[in-house]
Design a protein around this nucleic acid. Structure first.
Lengths: 119, 119
DNA sequence: ATCATAAGTTAGAATTATTCTAATTTCAAA
DNA sequence: TTTGAAATTAGAATAATTCTAACTTATGAT
């Protein structure tokens, strides 16, 4: 692990708001890092490949990054806000259908968040 | 429903390979439609909003579109191939946590497909 | 220690999916 | 028919991400 990849991993793990590559880049600079955006992308790609962080794809917005602590996500269909939710683990159910080729799963729940509901 | 939106809905519903906007555009032209890519995008956005089709976000590739028949998806972590899978419906479990604000959920399973496994 | 090599980083250009803008067309209803 | 809203169009604009090629840093063998 290089200085940069360690820093980027730390930022992802200590952020509780699913930052994008750009937000991670900004946070790195706030810590006086001289890192460049391309390097942030490079390292995020490596970290995802190594299974040290998760990438969350949300249509219409840039990819977000998250820690690997097992949990699921909610996305507000009105404002796009992304939050955590914990739904019972269904790994075994999936494995019983897919077998050993299983790697992981992503569960994203669409809903209407409280603020948007009030309008 | 206009001619174009009906045609695009038909293409999505009759395609069994999760086409992208661009692929839908190509298929429309194969049917001698004079539709333009921007119109395909416009209509896809409307159809998704109306709940008539589903949009699938996969990081690193363009969005894919699919019918609304209830099912889940697998993504090969090596080659990115997208396929259908049917995992037991967990709507009730999610609703018991989220309540009425629930809209829908997307379950994407990462795995290694047979071809990539052989290598 | 020194050199060789690989890995990591950088700047900036390139790519590409998608949206935006503004003009034009379609088409239903008054 | 006139009107007005909605749909469509062409093409420019935007923005996330990757690519390229040069450069730097770290590593490991001699």
């Amino acid at each position: 692990m290089t200085k940069n990849s360690k820093m980027i991993l730390d930022i992802v793990n200590s952020s509780h708001d699913h930052p994008t590559a750009d937000q991670i880049f900004i946070r790195a600079k706030e810590q006086n890092s001289k890192v460049v955006l391309a390097t942030v992308y490079n390292n995020l790609n490596s970290l995802v490949k190594e299974g040290k962080i998760r990438r969350i794809a949300v249509s219409g917005k840039p990819d977000c990054y998250d820690n690997t602590f097992r949990h699921d996500h909610t996305v507000c269909v009105k404002c796009g806000a992304l939050s955590d939710i914990m739904i019972d683990d269904i790994t075994e159910e999936i494995k019983s259908k897919l077998g050993d080729s299983f790697v992981s799963y992503d569960l994203n729940v669409s809903y209407i968040c409280d603020e948007c509901r009030e309008k």
